[in-house]
Design a protein around this nucleic acid. Structure first.
Length: 354
DNA sequence: GACACGTGGCC
DNA sequence: TGGCCAAGTGT
């Protein structure tokens, strides 16, 4: 219930279902979730977006174990102290799971209330007041879910089905004919378009030892260098190919070379010597990969990836867990954002489950 | 209160 | 293609 509410924030039901099922298989209890590593939690969230929800849910699970003896609190005020739980989710959990008569006003409920009253932009205090006045104290969870369901199925954002709506006789917007203009749309700012050069460093190392008939010894190990993003902010904690912003008029390839060079030479010189092939980053064969366009909510990003084939693996900076050489199997086990997955599949082919 | 924060579907 | 939308929260 809690997990589903978090997953459903800003996300469609059909998208959530497979994630929800996989999640409960892996984390059947709050205790299991609390024990897990954040990396695994993010891996199960991979593709769902808004990854802070996963990090917060994980932290909240640990807090529930530590402070509430593993029992989810039923009081909305207490719920809101947990990371990732705000006014909506606290109301939803408290009313649906604990029968506490509090409102749970999401975007759907807001739209219904906005139309019922023909108020183009009701504030959240107003919405809570209206919902509180209407709520059935005997079945607050059912009421809240019904209100949201009505907004989702009948009182839809576009082309509301007023003919099927049980409340159409009481609807001020319907009377005024303004239902499709309620609530008033928020004006959006234009999203900046950015270009990012991506350096895919690929190492196909054949085993140096010969004379063995072991299959593994004839199969080259293919590894790519991945970097973990800082644990907060955009795509926090997720792994991606190293890259850098491309300024207007700048050549993406030059940026990628610069990034690649800095990575293979960032350890001490002796290691570089032993891996002299790595110095060939700026000489060696460069292969253009397919450009990946990706639209976030607040920016549009164009990833321009280049594949650098190294014949030896560059120094894996020890103690630097932000940077790691990974084979296809390892890469399938760490959380990677969707756009970077599109780059990865160009190198490794499809890997692992979504 | 404004802004950051992902992704996929729709038209 | 590109803009808009969808079950919010944290800072």
């Amino acid at each position: 219930m809690w997990v589903s509410e978090i997953m459903l924030q800003q996300t469609r039901v059909e998208t959530v279902i497979p994630y929800f099922e996989a999640w409960l298989r892996r984390f059947p209890t709050i205790g299991k979730l609390a024990e897990a590593e954040e990396q695994e939690v993010l891996r199960l969230w991979q593709g769902l977006g808004y990854y802070s929800r996963a990090r917060n849910l994980h932290r909240a699970a640990r807090e529930v174990m530590r402070r509430y003896d593993g029992e989810i609190p039923g009081d909305p005020t207490t719920l809101e102290t947990l990371p990732g739980i705000g006014p909506y989710t606290s109301g939803a959990v408290a009313s649906i799971a604990f029968q506490v008569p509090v409102p749970a006003v999401d975007g759907n409920a807001r739209r219904v209330l906005s139309r019922l009253t023909d108020d183009p932009d009701p504030g959240w205090p107003t919405l809570r007041r209206w919902a509180s006045a209407l709520i059935d104290p005997e079945a607050p969870g059912d009421f809240n879910q019904a209100l949201m369901e009505l907004g989702s199925k009948i009182c839809s954002p576009r082309r509301p089905k007023c003919g099927e709506c049980p409340l159409s006789d009481f609807c001020a917007a319907r009377r005024a004919g303004t239902q499709s203009e309620r609530p008033a749309p928020r004006r959006r700012r234009s999203v900046p378009r950015l270009v990012e050069a991506v350096a895919v460093l690929l190492c196909e190392a054949r085993p140096s030892r010969s004379g063995s008939d072991d299959v593994d010894s004839t199969t080259p190990t293919r590894r790519v260098l991945l970097r973990r993003r800082p644990s907060t902010g955009l795509l926090g904690g997720m792994w991606e190919f190293p890259g850098g912003p491309v300024a207007a008029g700048e050549d993406p390839l030059e940026v990628a070379r610069r990034v690649g060079r800095s990575l293979v030479s960032q350890s001490d010189g002796s290691r570089l010597e032993r891996h002299s092939d790595c110095a060939a980053v700026d000489l060696g064969p460069v292969q253009r990969l397919r450009v990946v366009d990706h639209a976030f909510t607040h920016r549009r990003l164009q990833y321009v990836p280049f594949l650098f084939r190294l014949s030896a693996q560059g120094p894996a900076p020890e103690g630097d867990s932000e940077l790691m050489w990974m084979d296809p199997y390892e890469a399938a086990g760490v959380p990677i954002p969707v756009a970077q997955l599109k780059v990865l599949t160009q190198v490794f082919g499809p890997t692992g489950p979504p």
